[in-house]
Structures are given as structure tokens and as C-alpha cells.
Amino acid sequence: MKTAVGVFVLAALATLFALPSVLSAYYITLVLPAVAYAIALLGFNLLFGYTGLLSFGHALYVAVGAYGAAVLSSKLGIKSFELVLLLSGAAAVAAAIPVALLSVRYEKIFFGILTLAFGMLFHSFLFKFYDITGGDTGIRVLRPSLFGNEFKDLDKTAFLVGPFYYYCVGLLAILGFVMWRIVHSPFGLHLVASRENRRKSEYLGVRVRFFRLIAFSISAFYCAVGGAILAINTGQADPELAYWTHSGELVFMAVLGGFANFFGPLVGAFTFIFLKSELMGLTQFWRFWLGLTLIVIVVLFPRGLVGVGQDLWTRLHKR
């Protein structure tokens, strides 16, 4: 099983790295947000899948990452993408800690509603305080430098589908590996234990609230990294990123892929982005079909696409 996972991951990464030589630039600009969401969902699922806390406000941290990239690049003139990632990630953690301190006192629906309220608080801040945040138009995001290289000879698309794309896939690989280690560490097992039986794990000495706070902060960091990539891809950070429906989309992706599996949310991110863009090309009523897909997944395949794949796999092997 372990080797199978390893082979699968290597194959997936090789495919991602090979994609620019196969697909047109248009499709690569679609893969880029999928990579960004995949990173964000790695973090989101630490909280949702492993800790069992459903946040309906994680778009807040995606937005912090996006606005972080915007403010740092166009207002403070910081070019280095590494610095942008670190600083916006740190900002997201700083924003997450007070929210988490309050929210981890709750579970289930109350946790969801409280995080939603915080997300909308940030949204109305972005939306209303025009002088600081640019209101509904948001802030422009300038092209960053990667490892000090500005790639001045490339135009915007060439930069995005070229060096920036490879950089982000590399980032996904590294952050994915780190998250894999986190969820398989004693810390990750503490989270799972407190999800399965809070009282029992408390009795055994798990500091449930503290660990959940840490998990919340890590997930915020990942979401901010995803948000920064998204913002550079579109060249704009706008308040819609913090809206509650965007948080809903994050949950959608996690469930679509299957949140019980480490790789489920990643599969969900890629599937969601392609499904959405294909539907948007086909009909103006894409939300309807997206909603219908979600209903089918929730009602018939609660374990998501990865769950369906696993069932097929075991069925094939039994024969």
C-alpha cells in the first residue's frame, strides 16, 4: 500500500511537471488555480478531515494571502515571492490565532457558524474600508521575483505558465510532504484521537483545545499560500475571495474528492476547477449543475471521488 501511494504521488507530480509541454497555455492557467486550491485544501483538511472541525470561513485566510501578496507587492514594493509567502502566511496565522482561540471552544455547527461570522467580518472590512483595501475592486498584485529572478524577458502569460507554474508545483510537493508528515506525526494522531472521542482523549492527556488551535493556525498558513498564488495568477485581490460562498467552495472541493483520505481534497481541487471552467464554457447556468453534482456526491458518494476509486479498486482485486 505504501509503495502504491508513493508511485501514485510520483506519477501525479511527473504529470504536473510535464503538463506545460502537452497542454496549451490556456489550460495551464487553469491548472495553476487548481494547484493553489490544492495547497489551501491541504491545510483546510487538516482541520476538517483530521480534526473534525468544519470551518465555513476559511476563505478568510485565502483572502489574507491574496491581499498580503497585493499589499506587499504593489504598496510596499516587495518583489521576492519567498518573502511574500512567508509574510502573508505569518499574517494569516496572526489573524487565525484570535479567531481560533474563540472558535475551538466549540464544535460542529457552532464552530462552523462562528468561523463564518469571522470570515464575513473580514469581508465587510475589505468591502467597506475603501481607502485601505480598495473596496470592491480590490488591490492589484504585481509580478513577483522567484529566487531573486524577475524574468523580465517573459510576458505575463509566459511567466505564469512557465517559471511560476513550476515553482507552484514544487511548492505543492514540498507543502504536501510536510503535511503528510504532520498528519502522521504524534501531533496528527492527537488530532484524530480528539476527533474520534474528545472526552476520552482529554482523559488520556491530549490538550484538545491547544492542539486544535495549532491545527487551525497551520491550516490558515496553507490557505494563505494558496491565496497568494491565486492572486498572482489573476493579478488582483478582491473581497469576493473572503465571501462565505468561497468558503463553501473549499468545503465542496474537500467533499468532492473525499475528505477522509489525505489525497481526496487534492483530487477535489483539480476536479472542481476543471468541472467549473468546463461548465462555465457550456452554459451560463453552471451553478445549477455544480449544485446538482454536489447533491449527487453528498447523497450517493459521501466518501467522494477517492472513495469511489477505492471501492472500484477493491472490487477489481476481489475477482
Binding site: F56, I109, G248, V251, L290, L294, V298
Partner: peptide, 13 residues
């Protein structure tokens, strides 16, 4: 989570 998502799907539709 599933209950919330199902009603979220209704919002989209």
C-alpha cells in the same frame, strides 16, 4: 458537514 453542504448545493442551484 453533509447537511450544511446539501443546503449549500441548494443555494447554488
Amino acid at each position: 458537514a453533509f447537511q450544511l453542504l446539501l443546503t449549500f448545493a441548494l443555494v447554488l442551484m
